[in-house]
Design a binder for these strands. Sequence first.
DNA 1: ATGAAAGCGCTAACAA
DNA 2: TTGTTAGCGCTTTCAT
Lengths: 360, 360
Amino acid sequence: MPAVKRGGKGPVTIDDVAASAGVSIKTVSRVLNHEPNVREATRARVRQAVEQLNYRPNPSARSLAGNRADIIGLAYDNPSDSYITNVLHGALGACQEFDYSLLLNPCDYRDPCLPQQITQLIENRRLAGLILTPPVSDVAELLRVLDQLEITYVSIAPIDRERPGLYVVMNDRAGARDMTLHLIELGHRRIGFVKGHPDHGASHHRFQGYCDALRQSGIAITDELVVQGMFSFESGLECGERLLCLTTRPTAVFASNDDMAAGILHLAHQRGIRVPEELSIVGYDDTPLSRVVWPSLTTLRQPIQEMARAAVEQLVAILRPNHAGLKAHAPHETLRYELVVRQSACPPPAGARRPPRDDA
Amino acid sequence: MPAVKRGGKGPVTIDDVAASAGVSIKTVSRVLNHEPNVREATRARVRQAVEQLNYRPNPSARSLAGNRADIIGLAYDNPSDSYITNVLHGALGACQEFDYSLLLNPCDYRDPCLPQQITQLIENRRLAGLILTPPVSDVAELLRVLDQLEITYVSIAPIDRERPGLYVVMNDRAGARDMTLHLIELGHRRIGFVKGHPDHGASHHRFQGYCDALRQSGIAITDELVVQGMFSFESGLECGERLLCLTTRPTAVFASNDDMAAGILHLAHQRGIRVPEELSIVGYDDTPLSRVVWPSLTTLRQPIQEMARAAVEQLVAILRPNHAGLKAHAPHETLRYELVVRQSACPPPAGARRPPRDDA
DNA sequence: ATGAAAGCGCTAACAA
DNA sequence: TTGTTAGCGCTTTCAT
């Protein structure tokens, strides 16, 4: 039932509503924009007319006349599909709630032209704000340009948290520490670590967490047990190669993300090393893949959707300072990670390998 | 270098360009819209002014004055992350090329309100066109409503290919047939099949392809070897359960997608059934997961990005009939699937199980 | 081949 | 509390 239609000419406009409600278009406009100074009775009449005519304000006319922008950009450089999808859905949900459109902008964070490209984007599409996901959130030159452009932007999980500006972070360091402690509690003392891509902030923080845990447990940090990965499955394979060929193999490996953990696991299978009996493997991120491999990976879930939503909320808090419905929750207060224990980690083989003394 | 700026007031408008080029705004408009009837010299002058002032037409003003829509909607109901991401990037690329915006609309295909929701979306956002991915592309009531709304839309991989209207399809049936033949050529005769979610068109076509292959190879279709899955990893586990407990187990299982194949593989590992030595498993879709599991899955790649791009092109061909740059390629001509042979399938165990006679 | 004028549907100042 | 009048920046007639 497409409601009442007036003489066949095109979509319903604000004038139709005004006529139908017996008020001026300005009053209709007031009601539409939740402005004060409208008698409740009038407000109701207008709303009813809107309803009855199935009126929808024309977004183009609105942003033209109001000189306002209602598009939020999302710049990302292909982390995993699941990461993108989560960020996307978190941001999308929040945008819908606050009446913004979300404009996706896949990009290459290594492209020297990135700052110009983003600038173009902002100017061409008249963006109201911008969300940056890692590693785009760490491109110094881009941040510099954005600052001087005076656009409102929010970084998700940036390396540098001292920088002024908006951002949403997770405590990667504490998460990685907890994961490492989990392994230590299981009895592991010789724990390999696969670092993530050096351009991603999370890589550094996660490595710190690993070190924290070892240190607080009185276990020495052994160079040969720490290898450099790139967050990809392939790099996991390579790192596994290095780690599993050591004369004294680690009893557990902590990979900075699930893709690399899957790589190590894959290699272990190839080599006939039984997981978790002979080798424990844990990952990070709780991607769908982590459940699917065999054995399922112990990993760490981050509330990515919620982080993306929080990013939008931060943006909106700046863009529309006196907006209603904006939860006044302390930022990050509700954002907690969660250790997901599955089958890929268990106590080390009994007596198989005596744990080397801390400072031997 | 933000190019030359005129007195501090706001963004560059068409008037600035007109003034700078010494022409009327109408001429500038003509150049911008690639309209005929402009002298080449004038055209050049205008272009130069545009360049110099770094002028960007205001999209809102454009669509308001021109009463034109430049947003294409994408309605999808969460298939896998990788599917979404591929569709998204394919569509996004094409949209950018043709100067459309892409508006994402995640939805629930079982929601009885879906038709109204989509109708709202189309009206609220003044969509120029709409892309439907499976299984949304098969919701009969939605299609009916869209038809009477007279909006241009294109379905990706719909079940019903006789229906008038735009669509992009892959030959799922032939793909599944080829995959099955691949197993048969390896020597398998007792091949399990895991059907996909019944609401997805692909499920039916893929099952048909399986049947085709068996039939043309003179192998009987055995009821107990065909089980109903739901395209999810969990359903793969369940189906594996049924298939692997048969008194005479299949020597190979063809799952209609990778997630389910991973489920079967996972279960086989749990049961200590060696893959592929004792059991071959193949999937469909070539999702990232298929490489990562061990052993990597033999699967079938579909050009999803290209299909999404083709969908946009079809839309644009209708929306802007006399658009340049639109490749006049026969639809689907270039869209080919590809069998990806990896390690999860090999010849059946020698003599372990005598292949039952076709019509025994 | 080019231009002048009249809106597109809405919001923003200002009146009343 | 409400209405009037200008525009926002562009495209569209219709002249020229």
